[in-house]
Computed example of a mutant assay.
Amino acid sequence: MLDMDAASFEALVVDELDQLPDDMVDGLDNVVFVVQDRPEDGSLDLLGLYDGWALTERDRYGAGELPDRIVVYREPHLAVCDSVSALRDEVHTTLVHEIAHFYGIDDERLHELGWA
């Protein structure tokens, strides 16, 4: 298990987000990225979460909607990583995975593509 304070982890997430391809992040509309210590249930099983309407379902999306959220959980990431390099890789994978949900790509397809 890796040890990293919340501020350092958030900086790492921002850095990994900045390294994603422009065509992946430029299309994100009304989405915020949030870092939290753990999921609400306190488990360490979930690394990230997309909370919102996928782009493919935005016909139900109205004006004035609160932003969708992509949440990256710090403690679960630290629990599965034993180095900063491994943590960067895992955060990168989590960001791609959750952004894919925004674009309407489900877990089955993400498994096929190697991002789950």
Rank of each mutant, 00 (worst) to 15 (best):
D23P: 11
P39I: 08
A116L: 10
N30K: 15
D5C: 12
I99Q: 02
E16Q: 15
D106H: 11
R109C: 02
H92V: 03
D45L: 15
S83D: 04
D106N: 13
A116M: 04
D59Y: 15
M24N: 01
E16W: 06
P21I: 08
V25P: 00
R88K: 11
I105L: 08
G62W: 12
V13I: 09
D29E: 15
A86C: 04
D41F: 15
V32M: 07
E10A: 11
G104D: 01
E65I: 11
M24G: 00
G42V: 06
L78Y: 05
M24H: 08
L49G: 00
D45P: 08
E65D: 07
V14K: 11
L95H: 01
E65A: 15
D3C: 08
D51A: 11
P67L: 13
N30R: 14
V84A: 05
D18E: 10
D89S: 12
F33Y: 10
L46E: 09
P21W: 07
L2G: 05
M4A: 08
Y73N: 00
D37A: 14
V35Q: 02
A11F: 09
L2Y: 12
D59Q: 13
A54E: 04
L44N: 06
Q19P: 00
A116R: 10
L44E: 00
W115L: 15
D26W: 15
A7G: 05
R109Q: 06
L17Q: 01
D23K: 15
P39V: 13
Y61F: 13
A86G: 04
D68E: 09
T56Y: 03
Y50A: 04
V96W: 06
R38L: 13
E98S: 07
Q36H: 07
C81N: 09
F9T: 12
P67V: 02
M4S: 06
F33S: 05
E75Y: 06
W115G: 01
V80R: 11
T94W: 06
V72K: 02
F33A: 03
R58F: 01
D37R: 13
V84W: 02
N30E: 10
A7T: 10
E40G: 06
A11Y: 08
D106L: 06
Q19K: 10
E108G: 12
S43D: 01
D37V: 13
L113C: 02
P21F: 07
L47G: 07
L66C: 06
D22S: 14
Y103N: 01
P39A: 06
A54D: 02
L78W: 04
D23W: 15
P39W: 11
D26A: 14
M24S: 05
A79I: 09
V35L: 04
S43Y: 02
L20S: 03
W115S: 01
P67W: 11
P76A: 07
L87C: 10
L28P: 00
V31K: 11
D5Q: 12
R38I: 10
A86W: 02
L110R: 02
M1R: 14
L17N: 00
V32T: 09
P76E: 04
I70W: 03
V96H: 01
E90N: 11
L113D: 00
D45M: 14
R58M: 09
E16K: 14
L55N: 00
E98N: 04
A100G: 04
L95Q: 01
E10D: 09
E98Q: 09
I99M: 03
